[in-house]
């Protein structure tokens, strides 16, 4: 399928909103307010231009077009962080980091405790446990729990906000 056909397989209006939402989520993960004057939608636009002029080559992709765009955006943002030396695990100065534990099981348990203290309900804790067990696709979690996937989407939204709140405390403890 060439690029022209691929562009017609997705609702471009929806995919731009979706990519923008993902860019916002990723950019929030570093403690930086300004990204060279760029907004999340600019990262999406830059990526789209690279796909259109072939710098990001759809012809070599082995996935559907939506996954291709998402994968490219992830890589673009990773590259941006790398070049600018933004590291997701860098806490701001008011949260100095020190090593308490190195075992992932203990670290996972610390993060769960923080989530509970921050008000995470049972549903959010369950989804977090699935993620830590490596089950990350909403549809798979929904199937395993026997619930509608829309319920999982709503819980993930809450969990993402909760993780944002505890991020620096987690960095300090772990």
């Amino acid at each position: 399928m060439n690029l022209s056909e691929a562009l017609k397989t997705v609702d471009l209006n929806d995919i731009l909103d979706r990519l923008n939402a993902y860019a916002i989520s990723r950019l929030k993960s570093v403690n930086i307010k300004s990204f060279d004057g760029k907004e999340p939608i600019d990262f999406v636009g830059d990526l789209l231009l690279k796909v259109l002029d072939g710098q990001r080559d759809w012809g070599k992709a082995r996935c559907n077009f939506r996954e291709f765009l998402f994968g490219c955006l992830r890589s673009e943002i990773d590259n941006f962080f790398r070049v600018k030396k933004y590291i997701v695990s860098d806490p701001p100065p008011e949260f100095p980091s020190f090593q308490v534990s190195t075992k992932i099981v203990e670290q996972r348990s610390h993060v769960t405790e923080l989530l509970i203290k921050a008000g995470a309900d049972d549903d959010e804790q369950t989804i977090f446990e699935y993620w830590m067990d490596g089950v990350i696709k909403p549809a798979e979690i929904a199937q395993d729990l026997g619930v509608d996937v829309k319920e999982i989407y709503t819980i993930v939204r809450r969990l993402e906000r909760r993780l944002e709140k505890i991020k620096y405390k987690a960095l300090r403890i772990i």
Partner: peptide, 20 residues
């Protein structure tokens, strides 16, 4: 945060925005 934990959270959110 441990990189494994961060990566799992990143991967999960990637899938969330892809599918939601």
């Amino acid at each position: 945060m441990n990189e494994n934990i961060i990566k799992r959270i990143d991967d999960a959110l990637f899938n969330f925005y892809l599918e939601a």
